[in-house]
Write a protein that binds this DNA or RNA. Structure first.
Length: 486
DNA sequence: AAAAAAC
């Protein structure tokens, strides 16, 4: 590995980009390169493999697409291929919205060239994508699943790919994506340039990533996993019941005009969005159980400022570039510490200031501890002074079950609590408990099946009633313990 | 304790 060369100037005009590219860049109003651009562009221009870590919102897309287009222009493909425009550069992303966004940017940069680009992702009709692929494109932007579909349908031929970019590379290399990714890579020539970019790289992923790179140049503009210094971060101790009221209060007190609100589950996402909407806040939900049409509409409405709160799962955590979003709420502490860095990267973009608020409830001790380890910083838990005096919610501190909220303890303390087996031993050591209360005799009667079994309504031709939340969300409502299988 | 990515 080798350090990137020192660049003395950071103006796009000093890059000697091909005229059509320079024109597009100028037209977009870009003059000065961001640090990641200044470091990555000259390296990518040499054709070397790159592993690039830079904070989100600092122009990574231009950092790889401009030099890539430049190389495609400079080195005309000399091979006699069946297609007149074989795919020469492939850009892979972990979400459809991100693929869409990157594809739009690539189109803008390539506007004055004769290079063709296209984007393919799931949830959309195959046919228009197929047509575009058959006509031939040099630059293909894609999500993994749909790309494999096109490969297997022989719509996309990747035998002449010279450049592969894995954006959000750590996500692309994680266990959920790796099999698809490996299959895609198996269709590509071994002789090629591979570029990996992300804001976060765990040590394990870094090692894995290196096995896909040949003699790479590592570019680290910021310490990996670092959050932008322009983002003011707060962690509030709340009960699960009080999160919504805390959210509304902070939005009002700080005069927040627009915010991302991240939650950990699709169902929670739909529910929270609905509840906030009912309370008169302009809210929309974005998660993977929505149709692609709804997803794109939700994002567009948020972008256009028609919606103030975008309640989203981690589908929106990475890369989405929406200007001037002043705040991000982590309604739930993210399961992966890395995702915290990505989520709060939705605000404070391009040097702007931003606010990141995370709600920490009783069972989040482990997640907060993980986060502290990643950020190499102690998290300072703050209390919220509620304006209203409705009763507070109850605390589930993960070790003592529910107790009334008097004062909020530090959930990290629960990590020092005795482990289950030790707890078991403690219980055994205790004097025997008082006799159990007498049971309701009803539950002791054996179950009596009805005399005639009626087939369920849906088998009689009736349509199942749509779920109250959203027709395409599977209900995850808990079965009452009494009826649970043993 | 989940989400994402194909039909």
């Amino acid at each position: 590995m080798q350090q990137s060369p020192v660049v003395m100037t950071d103006s796009f005009s000093n890059l000697s980009l091909a005229e059509p590219l320079a024109r597009a860049v100028a037209e977009m109003g870009y003059e000065t390169m961001t640090p990641i651009q200044a470091q990555a562009i000259p390296v990518v221009l040499t054709g070397r493999d790159v592993m690039g870590a830079a904070q989100t919102g600092t122009g990574k897309t231009a950092a790889f697409s401009l030099p890539l287009l430049q190389r495609l222009l400079k080195h005309e493909n000399s091979s006699t291929s069946p297609a007149r425009h074989p795919v020469r550069a492939l850009v892979l992303l972990p979400t459809r919205e991100l693929a869409d966004q990157v594809a739009q940017q690539v189109k803008l940069y390539a506007k004055y060239t004769n290079l063709r680009s296209a984007v393919v992702f799931g949830g959309m009709d195959m046919k228009p994508q197929t047509l575009e692929l058959k006509r031939g494109v040099e630059v293909l932007v894609a999500t993994p699943g749909r790309l494999l579909d096109h490969i297997e349908a022989k719509n996309a031929v990747l035998g002449q790919v010279e450049y592969v970019v894995l954006d959000e590379a750590d996500r692309m290399l994680d266990i959920g994506f790796l099999p698809d990714l490996q299959r895609i890579l198996s269709y590509l020539p071994k002789q090629r340039t591979t570029l990996l970019f992300s804001a976060t790289f765990s040590p394990e992923i870094k090692r894995l990533a290196n096995s896909y790179l040949k003699d790479p140049v590592t570019i680290e503009v910021a310490r990996p996993n670092e959050t932008a210094s322009t983002v003011e971060q707060h962690f509030y101790s709340v009960t699960d019941d009080d999160k919504r009221r805390a959210l509304k209060q902070i939005v009002r007190q700080r005069g927040i005009t627009q915010a991302f609100v991240f939650v950990n589950s699709k169902l929670g996402c739909a529910r929270l969005a609905r509840s906030l909407e009912r309370e008169g806040l302009k809210t929309t939900a974005l998660h993977g159980d929505k149709s692609q049409d709804e997803r794109l509409k939700a994002l567009a409405a948020f972008k256009a400022g028609e919606v103030d709160l975008l309640v989203a799962t981690d589908v929106a955590a990475r890369g989405l570039d929406i200007k001037d979003v002043p705040a991000v709420f982590n309604f739930d502490v993210p399961f992966n510490a890395e995702d915290y860095v990505h989520r709060i990267g939705r605000t404070g973009r391009a040097g702007a200031s931003g606010l990141a608020v995370t709600f920490v409830s009783g069972s989040d001790g482990r997640l907060v501890a993980d986060l502290e380890k990643l950020l190499k910083k102690k998290v300072d838990l703050e209390a919220i002074e509620y304006e209203d005096d409705r009763p507070r919610g109850r605390i589930n501190d993960g070790r003592r079950a529910w107790r009334e909220a008097g004062e909020l303890g530090d959930p990290r303390d629960a990590l020092d609590a005795p482990r289950p087996r030790e707890r078991e031993r403690e219980r055994e050591a205790r004097p025997s408990r008082p006799a159990a209360a007498p049971r309701d005799p009803f539950f002791d009667q054996p179950y009596q099946a009805p005399a005639t079994e009626q087939p369920p309504a849906w088998e009689q031709g009736a349509k199942p009633a749509p779920s109250r939340v959203s027709a395409n969300i599977k209900s995850k409502r808990k079965v009452p313990a009494l009826f649970k299988a043993q």
